[in-house]
């Protein structure tokens, strides 16, 4: 019995040491993505990760001269798991927000995309019109103010679906939380299944996700309505997230992104995957 116990404990020690990753050096990193947010990142039917961020990660890591591995990770645990050390960086269409900056460190942004409402066609929202096409929430003009009240009147009392722990969820809670019912989903797939089935009246999501989606067979029943919204709760674009202690890694990513902007790689990738240029400029 004693021997058994000692050998079990010894085995556990060996296992725990085996799993201890070496710290400090960034010659080999693991990057997490969601794998369920096409065209940013998704899993194809053969189980392979693909998408804008998958190709971008390859390009950035080549520029940084590091070996890397990409792993899929459920969205709602993606930041805690980064802190826990499951991986070293996140590239999963994660917008840079003040709140997230308390938990992680971001590189410079590599893409930016407005958020917009999506509805089922012929479901009573098709003729929703506002005077402006875009709203910037950090500086709201009177016209934008009017557009916001149109939105809150239209969706008042309705159910709006959104992916959990996203900037869109945060926006809904802040701006429409009193007038609409918010339903939060673990994955975009489940959100769409419920939008299609009519369980929710509208969804709020990233334009970069929805524009290619609506041109696709799977999006033929959906429509985008209302203005595209940016800034404020929607953050300052999408960046690579790393642990707060990894300042050097963040700087490496920022430098590589700048290089990719300069030689046009980033914009080429964005047009390939989003059908419009959502990449970072300057």
């Amino acid at each position: 019995m004693k021997k058994l116990l000692i050998s079990v404990i010894a085995a556990l020690f060996v296992i725990s040491i085996a799993f201890t990753a070496s710290a400090g050096q960034y010659d080999k990193i693991t990057i997490a993505t969601e794998g369920a947010f096409a065209p940013w990142n998704f899993t194809d039917s053969s189980g392979q990760l693909d998408g804008f961020e998958i190709e971008l990660a390859k390009d950035l890591c080549k520029r940084m001269g590091v070996e890397y591995k990409m792993v899929p990770q459920a969205w709602d645990g993606i930041i805690p798991s980064l802190q826990a050390g499951k991986y070293d960086a996140i590239m999963a269409a994660m917008s840079i927000t003040e709140k997230r900056k308390n938990a992680v460190l971001f590189s410079r942004y590599y893409a930016a995309t407005p958020s917009i409402f999506i509805v089922l066609k012929n479901n009573g929202f098709d003729d929703l019109k506002t005077d402006v096409d875009a709203i910037t929430l950090d500086q709201v003009s009177p016209e934008e103010e009017a557009a916001m009240s149109v939105l809150s009147d239209t969706f008042g009392g309705k159910t709006i679906g959104v992916q959990a722990a996203t900037i869109q969820e945060r926006f809904l809670q802040q701006y429409l939380g009193k007038s609409v019912e918010i339903k939060s989903y673990d994955t975009q797939e489940n959100l769409e299944l419920d939008l299609q089935s009519g369980r929710i009246d509208a969804a709020l999501g990233a334009m970069s996700y929805w524009v290619p989606r609506l041109n696709d067979e799977k999006g033929k029943d959906f429509n985008m309505v209302g203005p595209g919204m940016t800034k404020g709760p929607f953050g300052e674009g999408v960046g690579v997230a790393v642990r707060q202690s990894d300042t050097e890694l963040a700087a490496m990513f920022s430098k590589a992104i700048n290089e990719a902007i300069a030689d046009g790689t980033l914009s080429k990738l964005a047009i390939k995957w989003f059908t419009f240029d959502a990449s970072a400029k300057e």
């Binding site: 709602d76 930041i79 805690p80 802190q83 938990a103 959990a164 722990a165 339903k183 939060s184 673990d186």
Partner: peptide, 22 residues
């Protein structure tokens, strides 16, 4: 909680997303 119902586990997950204190 996996189908959007906010009972104890659903709320717990929501708080974690906001506080990162699992």
């Amino acid at each position: 909680s996996t189908i959007t119902i906010l009972e104890i586990t659903g709320i717990a997950k929501k708080i974690i997303a906001a506080t990162y204190a699992p």
